[in-house]
Design a protein around this nucleic acid. Structure first.
Length: 692
RNA sequence: GCCACUGUAGCUCAGUGGUAGAGCGCACCCUUGGUAAGGGUGAGGUCGAGAGUUCAAAUCUCUCCAGCGGCUCCA
């Protein structure tokens, strides 16, 4: 006699075991119709699940009461659509073997192994969608049935897919005594799949769906295992929702830093220069320079010293740091001295031999620096230090080069040459907490000024079961605690992740999402007990003895490339005045006003405002359109009426109508103020005061 | 690195075996205008590179290069 507790607290009792669907019916027929699944004791389940014991029950409908999408409903829908898609694909390509097909946040995928002679191509999408449409139209119920493990295993074996067999084994190992199958229709007659479920009641509930793209994946995510084809799709309860989703994707595309980078002329990548190597065009260089100046100023306030170091270093430097040959795969190949090259080629030296010579140090060479730390260490070590000097904080916008896999490169966010806003702090063990704290407060300041509040923090700790870490475990414990304490003070979500530490020390990472939801690691703060050891660094303590300093690596922005890539998307290209490459554009109404427009521009240039003039032979409407498309903060329309009053008519980006007229001198001082204060005071404010 | 797709004018793209196209941008001319595209004329292309098939290749095939979406990786 199950007692069912509903979300509002009411308790319903039933004489016999009863399905969730029938419970919904007992409340109301319309509710039952709207249901696609249920939560039984918080576990997402089929609506057809028969309840035998006391539990809490929450019915899952297409939309929540406030007409929002219900994530649970979409999850059921999408996993079910994955089944429909798999059936359609197997009808078209009978040899396709299914692997795994889960729902995602905004869709679903199915990993499938296709016969070698019949791969899936995106030209197949139309035919698959047509088949799927037919299956949806047939409105076949998703029917669950369970077999006892050994019996189920026989069935899976008979079907002959090693992937599904593996899934069955995994389910068993996870403690499952039975195997569950879902038929799309009638078991034994219609298509079915080994599946944990749950599903929506029937295919007819799938309102709209679309196959999105193909990708490749590896079985179990293992690069050395079978290669699978991953088919991505999405579905919604209504065509309207699907269209809305597709429109959002289009909108996101417009914010993409790669699209905006081209349109706003911020950066370029040229394949003859090399993939993953950013060319900063004048506009992008302005943004970068403003940011760098800002960071430099903040660093000076915090007692940092800027240094400059070369882009290359001897291999021996990296042998000492431990990065060569250990990380040779992810570095550009070494540069070898000319004399060595000659003699080696005369000796007929093979690549493998050369590589060995480099590893053992029999041949010396140079390397493009993959990180700045060894150079900064050498700066620190170029003179003796007293404990009174510590902490020593060395900062550099240091450009580094890493050999990223070609398939991983992505606009400005994943590149092969990038400039870190790097710094290394050398301190006593006692100073770690305070210094980590200082790094985080800098991050906080910078993110606040930029209005970037949507980031999360990851505290990378060592994996206790791994031996790859160097250094004293007691020191590790102390450093990990310092990171944890510092992260807590930030006031944003943070997670602790064992195994995410660098080999030399624990770290704090700042992670943001790009417009299409991909996460990127930006800044990082890392404690390092290892490199000071390897480089035998020391300072003289109060006891007149040598002591080992601790190092902290930190780069709050990560790299200028990635950060500005993310920043372009954050602002959708509409930079605030202090960062905008073009802060003001003067639009003369006709050639007759060109002279006054020049005067206006000179007045702005005189106070360091980046302004241009649009002297095309076009109407002002067209000039306004062009100016807005370039997302320029202020457009100044100047015509005879303005010239007469020595005024300008101001139009601010993002405002439909113009702000009105303002005396030229006032505008110049107002925008100068907006520039200097990074927006805390603005031209708009000035208008507001005048109008108030 | 792997799989799929894409590569045509400065940009966005059409062109599927038979003389290379459009819109925007650019230059010039007309227009001299007041808040999101006035009108006209013109310049601009080894169709990503190389090889092959063919009487004929932007188009078909192969190799390479690059981009995009994922996977894997990211000190």
């Amino acid at each position: 006699m199950p007692q069912i507790t509903l979300p509002d607290g009411t308790i319903k009792s039933f004489e016999n075991p009863i399905s969730a669907h029938d419970i919904a019916m007992s409340i109301g027929e319309r509710l039952a119709k709207a249901c696609v699944g249920c939560l039984i004791d918080e576990e997402l389940s089929d609506l057809s699940t028969v309840i035998e014991h006391d539990c809490t029950l929450s019915l899952v409908t297409e939309k929540t009461r406030d007409k929002q999408d219900d994530p649970n409903a979409l999850n059921l829908l999408r996993h079910s659509t994955a089944h429909v898609m798999a059936e359609a694909i197997q009808r078209i390509i009978p040899g396709a073997m299914l692997v795994y097909g889960p729902a995602l946040d905004n869709g679903f995928y199915y990993d499938i192994s296709f016969p070698e002679d019949r791969p899936l191509r995106d030209g197949d999408f139309e035919a698959i969608e047509k088949e799927m449409g037919a299956i949806v139209k047939e409105n076949r119920p998703f029917t669950r049935y369970e077999l006892e493990y050994s019996e189920g295993l026989e069935k899976v074996k008979a079907e002959g897919s090693k992937y599904k067999l593996d899934n069955a084994h995994r389910a068993h190992r996870a403690g499952s005594l039975t195997l569950s199958f879902y038929a799309t229709g009638e078991p034994g007659k219609d298509w079915e799949d080994l599946c944990r479920g749950p599903h929506i009641p029937s295919t007819g509930r799938i309102g709209a769906f679309k196959i999105m793209s193909l990708a490749s994946s590896y079985w179990h995510g293992d690069e050395n295992s079978d290669r699978l084809t991953r088919v991505y799709g999405t579905s919604f309860f209504s065509k309207k929702d699907l269209n809305k989703h597709l429109e959002q994707l289009e909108e996101a595309k417009k914010r993409d830093h790669r699209v905006l980078g081209k349109k706003l002329k911020l950066f370029a990548i040229d394949e003859t220069v090399g993939q993953g190597l950013i060319l900063w065009t004048p506009n992008g260089s302005v943004v970068r320079k403003e940011l760098q100046n800002f960071i430099s100023a903040e660093l000076t306030k915090q007692g940092y010293h800027e240094v400059f170091t070369p882009h290359i270093g001897k291999l021996d430097l990296y042998r000492t740091s431990g990065h060569f040959p250990y990380y040779a795969e992810s570095q550009f190949p070494p540069l070898i001295e000319r004399d060595h090259m000659h003699s080696l080629s005369e000796e007929g030296c093979s690549c493998a031999e050369l590589s060995n010579h480099l590893k053992t140090g029999e041949i010396e060479g140079f390397m493009l620096k993959p990180m700045n730390c060894p150079h900064h260490i050498k700066v620190f070590d170029s003179q003796p230090h007293s404990y009174k000097d510590l902490p020593v904080r060395l900062a550099e916008f240091g450009t580094v080069y890493r050999w990223e896999q070609s398939g991983e490169l992505n606009g400005m966010t994943r590149v092969r040459g990038f400039t870190q806003d790097d710094a290394h702090l050398f301190c006593t063990p006692d100073q770690i907490g305070q210094e980590v704290q200082g790094c985080l407060s800098l991050v906080k300041t910078i993110f606040r000024i930029l209005g970037m509040n949507e980031y999360r923090v990851r505290v990378g700790l060592r994996d206790p079961d791994s031996g790859k870490y160097t250094g004293d475990p007691a020191n590790w414990d102390k450093a990990e605690q310092a990171c944890r304490d510092a992260a807590e003070t930030l006031g944003v979500p943070f997670t602790e992740e064992p195994g995410e530490a660098a080999f030399y020390g624990p770290k704090i990472d700042f992670i943001v999402k790009d417009v299409i939801g991909r996460e990127w690691q930006l800044g990082t703060v890392q404690v390092d007990y290892n490199l000071p050891e390897r480089f035998d660094l020391s300072y003289i303590g109060p006891d007149n003895e040598k002591h080992r300093p601790v190092m902290i690596h930190r780069a709050p922005f990560g790299s200028m490339e990635r950060f500005i890539g993310v920043l372009i998307e954050h602002f959708a290209g509409a930079f605030p005045v202090w960062l905008a490459p073009e802060q003001v554009r003067v639009l003369p109404i006709s050639e007759k006003s060109n002279d006054y427009a020049h005067e206006v521009m000179s007045a702005l240039h005189a106070v360091g405002i980046r302004s241009t003039m649009d002297n095309h032979d076009q109407r002002v409407q067209a000039k306004i359109k062009n100016g807005s498309e370039m997302k320029i903060p202020y457009l100044l329309i100047v015509g005879p009426r303005d010239a007469e009053n020595r005024a300008v008519s101001v139009r601010a980006f993002g405002i439909e109508k113009d702000l009105g007229q303002m005396p030229l001198d006032n505008f110049v001082s107002a925008i100068g103020e907006e520039y200097r204060t990074k927006g805390r005071s603005s031209v708009r404010d000035r208008f507001a005061t005048v109008n108030a």
